[in-house]
Simulated assay, not measured.
Amino acid sequence: MKEKLDRILLVDDDDSTNFLHKTILGRLDCANHIDVCQNGKEAIEFLSAKVDGEYPQPNVIFLDINMPIMNGWEFLEAYEKLIPEQKGDLIIAMVTTSTNPADRQKAQDFNFVSTFMNKPMRKDNIRELLKAHFPNLF
């Protein structure tokens, strides 16, 4: 049996994008759980809530920039303030339709953001990211 990540979190307000990305991740069969939050506030609440006495601690967060209520940048600022047990040891990938070079630079200013990807994500982009950070998966 191949090794899998325990949990991936998609943070995006677009239902069709979430459906597509969840389908691609499902086909890669790389995680036991794929959770979806519609905005940064929901994602912070998700990361901060214990389930059966433990925080969810996803291995990867795919984060959109432009969302209502709390956008990706606001999420990253709130994420920095979480306690270590809520953060876990994870990779954050910014996933966006933005072509603004300033967004890519701003993402690099957060040391826990590992990559900046264009939407929609493709199987090869996801596989490349996972191979780089989790070589035992493939």
Score class of each variant (00 low, 15 high):
111 N>T: 11
72 G>T: 15
114 S>G: 10
25 L>W: 00
63 L>R: 12
85 E>Y: 13
32 N>K: 14
61 I>Q: 06
61 I>Y: 04
104 R>E: 09
118 N>K: 11
89 D>E: 13
49 A>D: 12
74 E>P: 02
43 A>L: 08
68 P>G: 02
116 F>M: 01
128 E>Q: 06
24 I>P: 08
135 P>N: 12
119 K>Q: 11
26 G>L: 13
115 T>C: 06
36 V>H: 07
79 Y>G: 01
124 D>E: 11
95 V>M: 00
95 V>N: 00
13 D>C: 10
2 K>N: 03
62 F>T: 14
136 N>E: 08
118 N>R: 15
27 R>I: 12
30 C>F: 01
42 E>R: 10
11 V>S: 04
136 N>P: 03
102 A>P: 08
107 A>F: 15
81 K>F: 14
61 I>G: 07
63 L>A: 05
34 I>F: 05
82 L>Y: 08
7 R>N: 04
65 I>D: 08
51 V>T: 15
120 P>H: 14
67 M>R: 05
56 P>M: 06
23 T>Q: 12
121 M>C: 11
57 Q>I: 04
14 D>R: 14
94 M>I: 13
87 K>I: 03
121 M>I: 13
22 K>V: 01
129 L>W: 01
65 I>L: 14
8 I>Y: 00
46 F>S: 02
116 F>S: 03
28 L>A: 04
2 K>A: 02
37 C>M: 08
44 I>L: 04
125 N>R: 11
60 V>A: 00
21 H>Q: 06
8 I>H: 00
130 L>N: 01
115 T>L: 05
5 L>T: 05
96 T>Y: 12
119 K>L: 15
81 K>D: 01
134 F>L: 05
82 L>F: 12
65 I>E: 02
9 L>Q: 02
19 F>G: 10
7 R>L: 00
128 E>T: 11
109 D>V: 10
2 K>D: 03
16 S>C: 15
65 I>P: 07
108 Q>A: 09
44 I>M: 06
134 F>I: 09
44 I>T: 03
34 I>H: 14
40 G>C: 13
49 A>L: 10
62 F>P: 06
91 I>D: 06
59 N>G: 04
85 E>L: 07
7 R>Q: 02
130 L>E: 00
32 N>M: 11
34 I>K: 14
97 T>I: 13
91 I>P: 08
38 Q>P: 14
121 M>T: 11
71 N>I: 13
54 E>T: 05
14 D>I: 13
88 G>K: 10
94 M>H: 06
42 E>M: 15
73 W>N: 06
68 P>N: 03
24 I>Q: 07
86 Q>C: 08
19 F>A: 15
